[in-house]
Design a protein around this nucleic acid. Structure first.
Lengths: 204, 204, 204, 204
DNA sequence: AATGAATGAGATTTCATTCAT
DNA sequence: TATGAATGAAATCTCATTCAT
């Protein structure tokens, strides 16, 4: 009945390993085929566990996607925040740092990125809160710039925030599907250039 | 049993009516719930025809979506082309006309727009060509401007074309879900302002 | 699109036939094995229809049992009422007629009887109203007799009604399992003799 | 590693405690929800032991029910026998003592009673002997009375034995579900009054 | 001996599609 | 040609049971 600490940590890590494998494999499959073309048996099989084990870790398929998305949103959010904070006061540099952080994350965890920010991320099942397409941070920043008269009057912060979020997610996912579509630099440069805070800056 | 031409044409128009009702009702349902949450029986029922009749018009559910998307892509394409042609030589005016045409179409046929350009539109079933997210026209235009030195060197035409397409579709669908989210003018102004041909024009 | 009346009635009867077969076979299986030991595939298979057809007729397994029970309760109820009404004013004769009607019904439709009044009938799934063990009619009759001083003071109508219902259902089901356990007459005589209205009649 | 006797007995009593807790908690759950709506994990959890421990004590879920029923049958049987023996030679008094003993047992161990004598008790799994509805003792007694001419000729001992057993179990379980349904005395009086040996005694 | 994570067989249920009428 | 009842493959999810720790 008793167990020494090593035992416990070993077992813990075994269980965690299974969860990780499911997440890993699930991200791959969901990114590649989409939630409707993948079933729980396939995920379990691919992760090398029994179906029941899948359900021991996640109540259902959508919970897996949600977990993946939530994790990605959190990790990317923190990363962006750090990058922007380190970029100094210049808006151009902040925007560049943001885009750079996003692309770097997408390169490191392409499947996660696609699951969290690809087309399926926009809304979950009815009644399940959407995740992965938050434009709140972008909105706040743009509203601030707008109040400061730093961006053009023709630009509506809400629309622009949404626009950039869609653009960023769409472009990065498109690029991840085939990185040969554009050089990495072109990706970063273009996105940075089209960010409302840069594209819409008042000329004076 | 002979049939006089009238009868034939009457039946023909009846058949067309059925097809139209299926398309109409199908667009509504697909836009609202997505392809996986709607089944062929529901569509047929809602359209007031038998299930068998649905399959007499479309080989399957995806063919209905494809037909809706193709129709929307074609109608919107023609409309945009006309609008741009009528806008004169000025790039700003052309872009504005394009965005205006897109938004006008979205207002007239919101369900079609969402089906054709919403999140589900990006890719069809595996093996079925994607439709609804073509950025070919935008790409050509941007490449041309690029060659003429009319847009910034930091902008990659392929990336920018994709970026604008995603932005446009994403923002318009977002707006259609709740037009209270932004005034129509703000939508048009902001999208026009963020179009690569405008946002990225060389300053000199 | 048009059908002559014959067609319609033929098709109707085909569909009804399927429903009947499911009910028939379902009664047999439920009576023999109990609801938990039978699954919807078995019922469908045994009825010679597809699984989907089963679900086209009944939302689930319990609905089938409920339908069987409700039908039996109604048919038996009507039969008993008629028999008692035809038995004249004598309590002994009424009771005898009642028991006779019950046993006759059980002989004609043993599977239905066992499903409706066997041990599983007492309560359905939680939240689903119990059916098949109604002692309301018996209760009313006994209360009346009690008020008229026709049955012993030591007999509580509610308890006695329940007692007779349990006794009747239990004994008849036990007898149906193997009619060799007792002669039919002994069954009827004994049940009639033990009915509270007879067993408990005031001696004077 | 030697163990002194104390240790062994300590462990033994721990093991017995576990078994008791499982029986206790299992009776509660089985009485309330029925065998199919309860699973072994729930029983183990509720009893505060691991699933594996449950299976160390009982080969399966049905064995638990069987153990509960067997125990109840034995305890109640002994109790009834003692009560009847102590009641003297008068049939009425013997019957009353029997019913009184049954009701007293049901009050003391309502969950056990419901598991052993409720609707699920009648038959076990196919091939597993039924338990809890034995009418053997009642049968023997009635046959004896019948041979002695002490009960009416219209009463068949086998049917009557079954009838009383069903009545008794059904009524007591019904009363246990909500003791407000009838006063305890009414329960005992009515059951005693309807026992074949009393209800069917020859009038002379 | 005790544990509970892991397993996978099996039950329920849905729905795209067919086809007899 | 239009219909919708019938079908069964396939997906989801549960739970009795095992077994490594």
């Amino acid at each position: 009945m008793k167990r020494d600490p090593d035992r416990i940590s070993l077992e813990k890590s075994k269980r965690d390993d299974q969860r990780s494998r499911i997440l890993e494999v699930g991200a791959e499959l969901l990114a590649e085929r989409g939630i409707e073309a993948v079933n729980s048996n396939q995920i379990a099989r691919a992760a090398g566990v029994g179906v029941g084990t899948f359900y021991a870790h996640f109540p259902d398929k959508l919970a897996l996607r949600h977990a993946l998305a939530a994790e990605a949103v959190e990790r990317l959010g923190a990363r962006v925040e750090r990058a922007v904070a380190a970029a100094g006061g210049e808006v151009e540099l902040q925007v560049r740092a943001l885009v750079e952080a996003v692309v770097a994350f997408a390169e490191e965890a392409p499947a996660r990125f696609r699951v969290a920010f690809g087309r399926e991320a926009v809304s979950g099942a009815p009644g399940r809160a959407a995740i992965g397409l938050s434009d709140r941070a972008a909105l706040r920043r743009l509203q601030e710039l707008r109040r400061g008269g730093r961006i053009d009057a023709s630009i509506d912060p809400a629309v622009a925030a949404r626009a950039f979020t869609c653009m960023q997610n769409g472009v990065v996912c498109w690029w991840l599907e085939d990185p040969g579509r554009a050089p990495r630099d072109a990706l970063v440069d273009t996105l940075a250039r089209l960010h409302p805070a840069v594209a819409g800056r008042t000329s004076a």
